[in-house]
């Protein structure tokens, strides 16, 4: 089997909060092949972005402990010095963020911001300005020459996100991390940006780590899906398998909470309760079960193995509670916070 593009094994992340380290990510295993789109799905606070920031090495080293192994093209990233990390950020991995306006320096011309992504790694790069125009062209910006001379505030939201993509692509990285790339955009612009990301990915055979809370975006984009809850992966499968045969109670709950396929007369499934605070996360349990009110305490408090169980072809689920899980349609919908 060919070498994996990204191979993360047992990645845990702890943040120092009020003097104590608290776990935000617990033994995450994920891998991405060349040309694969992996969607990491979950609600806010699930740890999706924490994982992405670990791959980028962008956690504040004074307040964060990252353990485990993250290999990119076979090279270990955990334990790299800042200087070593700087040489690989933006070269082997490019990143796209949620809010393209705040993610661009308001006082720097678009062209300069794209050029910086190249010159920072190679001071002697030839014809940077031509390559900037080429990149703007690649991301579908028609009037590249004029746009390069503009400042971010003069562009529309969709244009800005195209610029962000151009920055991420500048050094033709093998892996692109897109953290909620369309959440701040209108739906027609979202569709354009998603199509653009897909197109580029196919053309360059890049791997994509797509972080999103939007199931529609997942269904449109992903090859593989990993569902996260409270710092752990609870389910992992190919995209069709996941949408057609979801197993874990959390995955199933999310799908039933999405209004797009529910008839107006039906009630949406509202997941009761909230994601626990970091200090209350006991990662030996399946933490989501706390939010299923009709389950027996013995089920909720049962210890669960760190490793996911294989339940099908490339389909993995955490714990065993899914085997007997049924929705209790009496309480459904009447749940309160």
């Amino acid at each position: 089997m060919a070498e994996k593009l990204l191979d993360a094994q047992d990645v845990s992340v702890e943040f120092k909060i009020a003097g104590e380290y608290q776990k935000a990510l617990h033994k995450v295993n994920l891998s991405i092949n060349h040309g694969e789109v992996l969607a990491l799905v979950g609600e806010s606070g699930s740890g999706k972005s924490t994982f992405a920031m670990s791959v980028m090495g962008l956690h504040n080293p004074d307040q964060t402990k990252v353990t485990g192994s993250i290999k990119l093209n076979g090279n270990e990233l955990i334990g790299l010095t800042e200087r070593q990390f700087d040489q690989y950020r933006g070269v082997s991995v490019g990143m796209i963020f949620q809010d393209p306006l705040s993610s661009l320096n308001p006082l720097m011309k678009i062209g300069d911001q794209i050029a910086e992504a190249m010159t920072v790694h190679d001071k002697h790069t030839q014809q940077v300005s031509n390559r900037v125009l080429g990149l703007l062209d690649d991301v579908g910006i028609v009037d590249a020459k004029r746009v390069a001379q503009q400042y971010p505030h003069a562009l529309s939201g969709g244009m800005r996100q195209r610029v962000m993509i151009a920055i991420a692509l500048a050094n033709e990285p093998d892996l692109i991390i897109a953290d909620e790339p369309t959440t701040a955009l209108d739906v027609t612009i979202q569709a354009q940006i998603l199509d653009l990301i897909k197109e580029i990915q196919q053309k360059k055979n890049a791997g994509i780590l797509l972080i999103t809370h939007d199931l529609g975006v997942v269904a449109e984009m992903a090859d593989t899906v990993a569902v996260m809850y409270a710092g752990q992966i609870v389910e992992k499968a190919g995209v069709e398998e996941l949408f057609n045969h979801p197993k874990h109670p959390y995955t199933r709950s999310l799908l039933r909470a999405d209004p797009s396929d529910v008839k107006p007369g039906e009630t949406l499934y509202a997941i009761p309760g909230t994601v626990p605070a970091l200090k209350d996360m006991d990662h030996n349990k399946d933490l989501f079960l706390q939010r299923v009110p009709w389950l027996d305490e013995s089920v909720v408090n049962a210890n669960v193995k760190d490793e996911l169980q294989q339940v099908g072809d490339h389909h993995y689920v955490r714990g065993t509670a899914w085997q007997n899980f049924e929705f209790n349609d009496v309480t459904e919908g009447e749940n309160q916070v």
């Binding site: 950020r89 933006g90 963020f97 993610s103 320096n105 308001p106 991420a168 500048a170």
Partner: peptide, 20 residues
């Protein structure tokens, strides 16, 4: 956020300070 973008490009902390 733009600081994070610059860091993600591979700009060193010192240069992010100086240039951005």
């Amino acid at each position: 956020d733009y600081v994070r973008t610059a860091r993600a490009k591979g700009v060193t902390i010192k240069d992010v300070f100086r240039k951005h």
